[in-house]
Design a protein around this nucleic acid. Sequence first.
DNA 1: CTATCTGCAAACAGTTTGCAAGGTG
DNA 2: CACCTTGCAAACTGTTTGCAGATAG
Lengths: 172, 172
Amino acid sequence: MSKAEQLEQIRKQLQEAGYKLTAQREATVAVILECSQAHLSAEQIFIKTKAEVPEIGLATVYRTLEMLTELHVLNKISFVEDGVTHYDLCEENASQHFHHHLLCLQCGAIEEIHEDLLVSVEQTVAERFSFAVLDHRLTLQGICANCQAANSANGLPANQLDPSKQVDISQL
Amino acid sequence: MSKAEQLEQIRKQLQEAGYKLTAQREATVAVILECSQAHLSAEQIFIKTKAEVPEIGLATVYRTLEMLTELHVLNKISFVEDGVTHYDLCEENASQHFHHHLLCLQCGAIEEIHEDLLVSVEQTVAERFSFAVLDHRLTLQGICANCQAANSANGLPANQLDPSKQVDISQL
DNA sequence: CTATCTGCAAACAGTTTGCAAGGTG
DNA sequence: CACCTTGCAAACTGTTTGCAGATAG
């Protein structure tokens, strides 16, 4: 599905839910689609949207994000426990199951995995704990391929954190 | 390992790291050990500690929690994206791998699973994405056994959320 | 005795809310 | 034209910090 189609679909969802189509909302949605891989925070979305629609206020962005979360267009997430909420675009298809994330502890990069790796895990839990699984949140923390290569090049163990290279993840 | 032994061990860790053993810190650690299953927030820990040591201040609790997190005695977590950090006691044994959580979306109960269910998942990711996994965060969201039973008793589908029973998870 | 630690209050950052003005359907 | 939506500023919440006095080692 193309960006334009996605935007059109979200627009329709808003309308069906009885919301009005304002310039601010469209611009916000456009920014979110544009940067869907970036896991932006509200503030970051605000700044990017303000570049398009300068008269927008931060409160409106928050209200729009809240709205989109209710409509299951977005998911709130926080990888780092720094009190900042980031927003993640939901998959457009039927599967309500949330995708997984790989968080590089060295460079802070976040990669998404869209295969569902937890089918058997969820089955195990359902059986062993009588727990009916509806969704999941999985983040694997480690070192991405790039940083492994960089570490090797510097004569360091590839699969161990290089503290000198480590960025402050809470700044992301 | 008993509570007393754990407390003793943490006390030793503090000392070795060059921290002083104050009454406030001991009381805070005691509360955390006491309620290790409850995933308390800083405020909740403060209230329980103040019951023991009334002259303690909230800032001290925050500073102690920060300290214990650095010493890898605690882990910061947030199941619900409400901006409140909760604290989770680390396993005392060698395995640095974080345990998993089952979050009941109906009653808000949180169960811990201490078996590592992700060995094969991590292997898959390592191979397919060249990602060196160091740790993980997994929360399975669904309906606990209790709520399933309650739903059944009320003639509702056991494995589907009963909205009328749903508590505000962000209040936990 | 000295460096660390404490409580308090003020400062902070992210988010939410009340309100009057503006815009959509 | 009625109601929704907006921007602004003020309020709020969880957390952090500066400081003078208290305290552990």
